[in-house]
Design a protein around this nucleic acid. Structure first.
Lengths: 201, 201
DNA sequence: ATACATATAGACCGATCAGTCTATTCCACC
DNA sequence: GGTGGAATAGACTGATCGGTCTATATGTAT
């Protein structure tokens, strides 16, 4: 069946808000690009904030689906899957549509930690965190909670570093170097947790 | 000598934009909080964007000064200094005024990689990067460029992770756990670069 | 005292914003 | 062929925005 009006709206909102920011983008622009009328929006959502929250939920869904599919296509074991996360990051950073992590961006624009939008962003990060934790456990790593946190930090850090670069330094090589460094550090963290009995001094 | 009107304006702009975001904050609010009139702003700056750029430059200056002072007070060698960066991060994340990295936030709100604001953010990150690189070289680490990049990713990643948490999970323990994980990984990366001849598989 | 640079309050502009309302059209279902 | 729910266009509101302008006040140096 064809996508509902609501689906098209959320999809377009996701794309436009991701590309141009939340506060900087008016409702009008989203409606124009979706070819949808004003009242249709307000029949489905009470406010712009609710549309943003829905767009973030959609982003969480599609992003994780793409990531899991990417990983599943080229990794079998848990350690391989973890490293594939960073390969996924590399091709993402180098793609044209890369505008940083949409959830980091949302947290930047909505400073109130209690608001609904932040809660959606937080849910996404919990999902990523528990995926990493699951892989760490499955790999039989020592202190999987710590390692999963470190992997998460490396991934988000690579993402943030890739996004903060300006036009002159932000070429494809820089993105590749960033994701390579993150992946290399991830491999080090994993291998250390496989073998040695204590953390580094 | 007392701070100039311009200084007070930039200082207030830095604080208010950091706390409430750039696009979400009107000029009016900055002026009210600084006790400064509208025309004074536009005598010193051509536009809001220029004020934002100046606020970011100020932020770069004060942030790095505080960080370097913090580090200098509790570390002597280069490796110690690198780890102290993460201790600095910990007390920053746990402080009341923490609203994420202002430069990551700026990159989130101004997607155009060519704009002046992004260039200022990029400059700040280059300064941090070269500080880390300097420490890595001074410590005699193998492949200092790679290690410095990894440390930078860990720091920014910890910062991003700390900021994306919502009100329920974002307690002080979570901030401490995040910065501990980053510091632990940093120590591992450094120690590995001190001794072993090749990176992890 | 006079002159000058600087800051002030506050009106004002055009534009844009989120959100509401009305009147019309479309289309699937009976 | 008619009925009803859903989508449409577009006017409208009140507020806020960034930025300009004018007229007044202040303070300092000669």
């Amino acid at each position: 069946m064809p996508p509902s009006r609501r689906d098209e709206l959320v999809e377009t909102a996701m794309r436009v808000f991701y590309r141009h920011g939340f506060n900087a983008t008016g409702i009008e622009k989203v409606l124009r690009e979706a070819g949808i009328s004003r009242m249709t929006l307000y029949n489905h959502f009470k406010s712009k904030d609710e549309l943003i929250a829905a767009a973030l939920r959609r982003r969480d869904e599609t992003f994780r689906n793409k990531m899991y599919k990417f990983i599943g296509a080229r990794a079998t074991g848990p350690a391989e899957r973890i490293l594939a996360v960073f390969d996924f990051g590399e091709q993402w950073f180098c793609s044209d549509e890369f505008c940083g992590c949409m959830f980091i961006n949302a947290s930047a624009e909505f400073p109130d930690r209690d608001c609904a939008i932040r809660r959606v962003a937080s849910e996404h990060n919990r999902a990523i965190a528990s995926y990493l934790l699951e892989q760490c456990r499955e790999a039989g790593l020592r202190d999987p909670e710590l390692v999963a946190r470190q992997l998460h930090i490396l991934f988000e850090g690579a993402c943030a570093r890739a996004n903060v670069m300006d036009a002159v330094e932000g070429g494809e090589e820089a993105f590749r170097a960033t994701s390579f460094a993150a992946r290399d550090a991830a491999a080090l963290v994993i291998n250390t947790a496989k073998t040695t009995p204590s953390t580094a001094a």
